[in-house]
Design a binder for these strands. Structure first.
Lengths: 337, 337
DNA sequence: TTGTAAGCGTTATCAG
DNA sequence: CTGATAACGCTTACAA
């Protein structure tokens, strides 16, 4: 009955069916306010009956806008998807975009400034881009921001001046963790930090130290791990070797904490009795530990949603908005501290 | 000099510059053989000088082909990306597609047969689709296969008759694991299976039993876990309780094995001395265990690449090819068995 | 508020 | 081998 096979129904078909012109149908489809209620109603009915879906190519050609947002991810796509924080961020990006009529194009940044991704984007094949890569070359990023509106997710952008940025307040997050440890009475608090070459890791460490100093306490041992479980275990051993008497520790990622906690336990210490542990992320890993992990939550999903809000806002014409948006962290108290 | 600002140069501009018609330029761009050497040369020069890039939308509109492939993933996108097997598959899909001039559109299957994703695809906005969802409604999938060429990755498709399928031979994988255990002299072999409602899990269990029976051995305890670390630990306890004297075990996923192995060790048994362990997947998890895990590898990345090969082949007109492609598994021998 | 008509940049069908 | 000339499906002034 409905769709008369022969390819998808067109605007034309809907117009005929509803007894109006193509232009009117177009207005309805695009939510123009200047359409009378009755016409609106009948056009909608016709659209539903015919199962009409706008042809993206035609629309793009006529309007010079693609209605597509590019999701730019790091080259190393497999490892990338294994990261729960980024997975959640993408989830947020997707869900928010789903509410709009934009489509998400998955692009992998080849890092080289002359790569396929960049050319594609420079060719005007997307209206805007959200990039969640943490290690892409500056020249690539700079070229990108010149080609189209871009929103970066948690990026070290000192050198990239274009684009918008959504980030988490890592310094405050580090402070939150340390303060909590202090509040529950810990006096000798260590820090299992992230890689020293990562900005977020350093900021967390900075906040940690600040809060301790603020409380009149001297920071315990600080050792860096590589944000993996195994790295967390290794660093934990080093910390215990440096000071066996710590009674609290702030670990820069939940994943590292899952590696560190068994080490603490096998050293004959209880959690949180002897050593209180606070993680960072509030990733699923925080719930897999024997004693549920108290951690500082990053609003990863919300971060993705925010990135989309911003890009859509910019595309809507508000190019003068804040360039940097800082999202707050939050302590999630469970059993480990 | 080159591009005359005002938007990107068009076919028209190139034609004028080269002193030929639009049609001729189009032929050159699309590699038509019927173009004289001189003309070819001058058109190429014009293209280079102007920095011409074909407009995708116009091309799609005129040719009725989008040069886009939709990657359809399950609704639960966050959890999805956390799965290393699927992440690797996507990686394979992406990498192979990167070599072609197709673009990847990320779509999330809303599962409802009337969802946005389906309508988008029915609207002809992609030439083909690769779906890696394991739990999507049949009606959705059926509608999908009627709308465009589809390749499924490892799917229970008894009820879906359309589309192409790439899958791993799970039965053979289960056999491989069991045979290895037998070959290294184990006599009392248990199986830590996956969820009973998952086809792949059942097939592995089936292969396991077959190989044991074939070897004249009676299968040891078989207990299901939920494919998580914690689930693996729980099931392991049940198995040990059922039969403390097992000397070998095939675990249906590496992740569950990482949960099971500590249980074995804390029961005072050595690995592989007292109990040999074989996992499944060859995921990164297999390398995080104290004693590196011997496992049955799934060619996850290759699976993605194969899916792309098939969809491109079908789009190239070879619709009469095999509908099901079975990929082999492979034993990766490490220390645990 | 609604309709008319002129494109948008390519491809494709014919002639030549 | 090359060039007109229709489509392709939609948006968008401009009229009505």
């Amino acid at each position: 009955m409905t769709a008369t096979k022969q390819g998808a129904p067109t605007l034309e078909a809907v117009a005929e069916r509803a007894g109006v012109s193509r232009a009117t149908v177009s207005r309805v489809v695009n939510g123009s306010p200047k359409v009378s209620p009755e016409v609106l109603e009948s056009v909608r009915a016709a659209i539903a009956e015919l199962g009409y879906v706008p042809n993206r190519a035609a629309r793009t050609l006529a309007s010079k806008t693609t209605h597509a947002i590019a999701l730019v991810v790091p080259e190393d796509i497999a490892r990338f998807f294994g990261d729960p924080f980024l997975a959640a961020t993408i989830s947020g990006i997707h869900d928010r975009l789903e509410e709009s009529d934009y489509v998400l194009n998955l692009m992998v940044a080849s890092d080289k400034p002359d790569g396929k991704t960049l050319r594609y984007l420079q060719g005007g094949n997307a209206d805007g881009a959200v990039v969640v890569s943490h290690h892409t070359s500056d020249s690539f990023l700079a070229a990108l921001t010149e080609a189209l509106p871009v929103v970066f997710g948690g990026l070290p952008v000192e050198t990239v001046t274009g684009g918008y940025v959504v980030d988490v307040d890592n310094v405050e997050g580090g402070r939150t963790a340390a303060r909590h440890l202090v509040e529950i009475g810990r006096k000798r608090v260590a820090h299992l930090a992230g890689p020293q070459h990562m900005r977020a890791a350093n900021e967390r460490a900075q906040g940690f130290v600040e809060a301790l100093v603020e409380a009149g306490l001297e920071p315990g041992p600080v050792v860096s791990g590589d944000f993996t479980m195994r790295g967390g275990a290794e660093a934990m051993r080093a910390i215990l070797a440096a000071d066996p008497d710590i009674d609290g520790i702030f670990v820069s990622s939940d994943l590292m904490a899952t590696g560190a906690m068994p080490i603490i336990l096998s050293a004959g210490k209880s959690i949180p009795g002897d050593v209180a542990v606070v993680g960072f992320d509030d990733s699923p890993a925080a719930l897999t530990t024997d004693v549920p992990l108290t951690t500082v939550r990053q609003p990863s999903e919300y971060m993705g949603a925010t990135m989309v809000d911003i890009i859509l806002d910019v595309l809507a014409g508000h190019r003068d908005r804040e360039r940097v948006t800082m999202l707050p962290t939050e302590l999630v108290r469970r059993a480990s501290a």
